[in-house]
Amino acid sequence: MQFTSTPRGARLARRLVSHRLDEWGHPYDSTPNETFTLIAAELAANAIRHGHVSGRDFHVRLIECTSKATTTLRIEVADTRTERCPSFETPTPADADDESGRGLFLVAQLADRWCVEPRAGAPGKSVWAEIKLNHR
């Protein structure tokens, strides 16, 4: 889905993720929904703060893959800014008095895997994150 690179666009992306997860059987108040929605919020906020190009939107793609043992939830957030690409090294936490700088640190702590890649077929980058849910 495509969203405007504004705080409203980031808020709508977060709400879409939470709603879609609820539709997929991960209720709003469940740990997977809350965790994945937080990851989505951080990635969307980064897309508008660090990936914004005037007149360009950011894109969100959600994927759910289920096997016998696990379900993998994946989010991909793509923007069109090529030159501002975060390092894939493990992010360090921001200092306590810093007003920003915690987004990718939170994503790295909450996700089972995450990565930054060049955007396929268009200028920019895609940041994706996955969480795995074990079936009982």
Rank of each mutant, 00 (worst) to 15 (best):
Q2G: 05
Q2W: 02
Q2H: 08
Q2D: 11
F3D: 03
R8S: 13
G9H: 10
L12G: 00
L12A: 07
S18L: 01
H19F: 14
H19Y: 14
H19W: 10
L21R: 09
D22K: 06
P27F: 10
Y28K: 09
D29I: 07
T35N: 09
F36E: 14
I39Q: 02
A40E: 02
A41D: 10
A41N: 07
A41Y: 06
L43Q: 08
A44L: 04
A44K: 12
A44Y: 09
A45H: 14
A45V: 12
N46C: 10
A47V: 02
I48G: 07
R49C: 11
H50D: 12
H50R: 13
G51A: 04
V53D: 05
S54P: 06
G55Q: 11
G55H: 13
G55D: 10
R56S: 13
R56N: 09
F58A: 14
H59W: 11
H59F: 11
H59Q: 15
R61C: 02
R61S: 10
I63G: 00
C65K: 10
C65Y: 05
T66F: 00
S67W: 04
S67E: 10
T71M: 06
E76A: 13
E76K: 01
E76V: 01
V77G: 01
R81F: 08
R81T: 05
T82N: 07
R84L: 04
C85N: 01
F88A: 11
T90S: 12
P91S: 12
P91D: 09
T92Q: 12
A96G: 15
D97N: 15
E99I: 09
G103K: 07
L106R: 10
V107S: 07
V107E: 03
V107A: 05
Q109L: 04
Q109E: 09
L110E: 03
R113Y: 05
R113V: 01
W114F: 09
W114E: 00
V116E: 06
V116H: 12
V116Y: 12
P118Q: 04
P118I: 00
A120H: 14
A122W: 06
K125V: 11
S126V: 15
V127A: 03
A129Q: 07
A129K: 06
E130Q: 14
I131N: 07
L133Y: 09
N134G: 03
N134C: 04
